[in-house]
Computed example of a mutant assay.
Amino acid sequence: MSVPLYQAKAEFFRTLAHPVRIRVLELLCEGPKAVRDLLAEIEIEASSLSQQLAVLRRYGIVTATREGSTVVYALAGADVSELMLAARRILTDLLTDRRELLAELQAPTSPGEGG
């Protein structure tokens, strides 16, 4: 039995729905990185990073290659980078709209305005 597309999309977004995973993807948008470099940037326990990388790898969002004793992670495709940029644009728009609304709410009310 096949999974409906909307359900598969929800599972995909659940896979991304963790701050460490998002940070890893942001860093990998810059290019492939060794685990030690990711650890230095994210500053979490190695075991926690390993768990989050395993989730991303299992879903096929990142790839891992061994270079000697070093494991290097990379995005599995350019689409992930585009998704991260789209998320940034969406959040920027949302926050800009909210900031404008907040400014309107904080502005002094004119006479006769019901607030």
Rank of each mutant, 00 (worst) to 15 (best):
D79I: 10
R23F: 05
L39S: 02
L28G: 08
Q52G: 05
L102N: 11
L83V: 06
H18K: 01
L85P: 06
E11C: 04
A54M: 05
E82K: 15
L5A: 06
V3Y: 08
S69R: 11
V80D: 05
L28N: 09
S69Y: 10
R58W: 04
A103W: 04
E104S: 06
I61P: 01
Q7C: 09
L95A: 14
S81Y: 11
L25D: 07
K9R: 07
V62H: 01
I44R: 04
L102I: 14
G31V: 04
A64V: 09
R58H: 08
E82R: 15
A87K: 00
P19A: 00
L95M: 14
P32V: 10
V71Y: 13
S81I: 01
I90S: 06
F13Y: 06
R14H: 12
V24L: 09
V24N: 04
V24S: 05
L105A: 06
E26A: 05
P108D: 03
R66K: 10
E82F: 15
R21A: 04
E100T: 07
A40L: 07
E67V: 15
R89I: 08
L56Q: 05
V3P: 02
S48I: 08
I90T: 10
E100K: 10
L105W: 07
A54W: 00
G68A: 06
Q51L: 08
S69T: 07
S50A: 10
L25S: 07
V80R: 01
R88P: 03
V3I: 12
L94C: 12
L53P: 07
S50R: 09
P19L: 01
Y6P: 01
I90K: 08
A40M: 04
L101H: 08
T63L: 05
P32I: 13
R88K: 12
F12Q: 04
E67Q: 15
L85N: 14
T63I: 03
K33Y: 09
R88L: 10
G77T: 13
L105Y: 12
L56T: 00
Q7M: 12
G60K: 00
R14F: 15
L91S: 12
S50D: 11
R98H: 14
L94R: 15
C29K: 14
K9Y: 04
L95G: 08
L56W: 03
A87P: 01
K33S: 10
L94D: 11
T109Q: 14
T92G: 09
E104Q: 10
R58Q: 07
V55L: 08
E45K: 14
S50T: 07
G60F: 03
E45I: 03
A46R: 15
E67N: 14
S47D: 14
A54I: 01
V55W: 02
V71T: 12
E41T: 06
E30K: 10
V3F: 06
I61Q: 00
E43D: 12
G60E: 02
R57F: 04
E30A: 07
L16Y: 00
E11H: 08
D93G: 12
Q52V: 01
L102K: 04
R14E: 15
E43S: 09
Y59F: 14
T65F: 11
L102D: 13
S47L: 13
D79Y: 13
E43Y: 02
R14V: 04
T15G: 09
A46C: 07
L95E: 15
L16R: 00
L56H: 02
A8W: 04
